[in-house]
């Protein structure tokens, strides 16, 4: 059994008392919850999930309800997100899967770290166009014509390293949006952002910026 499948089974067993889970084959497990639809989840150990990889999983597991990137550092490319959502397949972290089996919405679930913030952005009227490049990166074009590349930073208290690592991995961003409602970026994180050329901010500051640009 793959290490990530083993972890996923143990995680579900320890944290979801009503669930029954079993290994199906390869990376796939089946999860059963009373009064909820059974879920076929594919547990990936990939560091990056591209559209090609998502399609490959879908070919290998045509009944897949949910694709889980088990590594915490797993990055989802925009093409993979579009493919999965277009095929009504849920996607996201182990935590997302855990919530989805309780809610009975595995097929429509999206990565819980970014879901709420991205939905918030989609509702902003001053944004004319939105291009999701990665799970945590989008470029928005405002009605004023201004284009802004935004990185969503999930850390509770983003550090200087979190900002630098993000920049190194995803390239230049205009705004590092700390989407975790609790905590605040450290002073070193704000300075690291300034050195690189991006502003590290919370929702209130981003909202203000969207109003003014």
């Amino acid at each position: 059994m793959n290490w990530q499948v083993n972890y996923a089974l143990k995680y579900l067993m320890d944290n979801h008392k009503d669930a029954t889970a079993q290994h199906v084959r390869g990376d796939a497990i089946r999860i059963m919850m009373p009064h909820k639809p059974n879920v076929m989840a594919v547990i990936s150990d990939a560091y990056t999930i591209s559209a090609e990889l998502a399609m490959q999983y879908h070919v290998n597991f045509p009944d897949m309800d949910f694709l889980c990137g088990y590594r915490k550092e797993c990055v989802w490319e925009g093409g993979a997100i579009r493919y999965l959502e277009g095929n009504t397949i849920g996607w996201g972290s182990a935590g997302t899967l855990g919530s989805a089996i309780y809610n009975g919405d595995a097929r429509s679930a999206a990565h819980k770290d970014y879901c709420f913030s991205y939905r918030l952005i989609r509702q902003i009227r001053s944004i004319k166009n939105l291009d999701r490049e990665f799970d945590r990166i989008f470029t928005m074009t405002l009605t004023s014509g201004c284009t802004v590349r935004v990185g969503m930073i999930m850390e509770y208290e983003p550090t200087a390293d979190a900002i630098r690592t993000f920049w190194d991995r995803f390239g230049p961003i205009d705004i590092a949006w700390n989407i975790n409602p609790n905590g605040n970026p450290t002073q070193n994180a704000i300075e690291a952002g300034a050195d690189l050329g991006c502003e590290v901010m919370k929702w209130d500051e981003l909202k203000m910026l969207l109003r003014n640009r």
Binding site: M1, N6, L9, K10, L12, M13, D14, N15, H16, K17, D18, A19, T20, A21, Q22, H23
Partner: peptide, 8 residues
């Protein structure tokens, strides 16, 4: 929760 077949 339970893991069927004690596979883990």
């Amino acid at each position: 929760g339970r893991v069927k077949d004690a596979a883990a």
